[in-house]
Computed example of a mutant assay.
Amino acid sequence: MVALREGFEREFALLMERLPPWVRREVEGYGASLEEIAMDLGYQLAYTVDGKTLYSEREVRKEDLDFVLHRVGGFKENNRAGLEGTLHRISRILTGLGEMAGITIRVGKFIQGVAEPLRPYLVETGGSLLVVGPPRTGKTTLLRDIVRILAEVYGSRVVAVDTSNEIGGDGTIPHPGIRPARRMQVPDPPSRHQGRIIYQAIANHSPEVVVVDEIGYNEDVQECLTASRRGVRVVATAHGERLLDVLENPALHPVLGDPDLRVRERRSRPAFSAALQVVAKGRFLFYPNLAQAVDDLLQGREPEGVAIGP
Results as ranks from 00 to 15, higher is better:
1 M>N: 14
3 A>V: 09
4 L>W: 04
7 G>F: 06
10 R>A: 14
10 R>F: 10
18 R>N: 07
19 L>K: 01
24 R>T: 00
47 Y>H: 07
48 T>L: 13
51 G>C: 12
53 T>P: 03
56 S>L: 07
61 R>S: 12
65 L>W: 07
67 F>C: 07
68 V>Q: 06
71 R>A: 05
74 G>M: 04
75 F>I: 13
75 F>L: 12
95 T>N: 07
97 L>D: 11
97 L>W: 04
105 I>D: 04
111 I>F: 08
114 V>T: 08
120 P>W: 00
122 L>H: 10
123 V>K: 09
127 G>W: 07
131 V>T: 00
131 V>E: 10
131 V>A: 04
142 L>A: 12
150 L>N: 06
158 V>L: 02
159 V>I: 15
159 V>D: 13
166 E>N: 11
166 E>F: 01
169 G>Y: 01
171 G>A: 02
176 P>L: 12
187 P>K: 12
188 D>V: 01
189 P>Q: 05
192 R>T: 10
196 R>F: 00
198 I>D: 07
200 Q>A: 10
202 I>S: 12
209 V>K: 03
211 V>G: 08
215 I>K: 05
216 G>E: 13
218 N>Q: 14
222 Q>V: 02
225 L>H: 06
225 L>K: 10
232 V>L: 11
233 R>I: 00
234 V>Q: 10
237 T>K: 05
245 D>Y: 01
247 L>E: 09
248 E>Y: 06
248 E>P: 06
254 P>W: 10
256 L>E: 12
257 G>C: 07
257 G>R: 02
259 P>W: 06
261 L>Q: 13
264 R>V: 00
273 S>L: 05
274 A>I: 03
274 A>R: 07
275 A>V: 00
278 V>N: 11
279 V>C: 08
280 A>M: 00
285 L>Q: 05
291 A>H: 12
292 Q>H: 00
296 D>S: 13
300 G>A: 06
304 E>A: 14
305 G>V: 00
306 V>R: 15
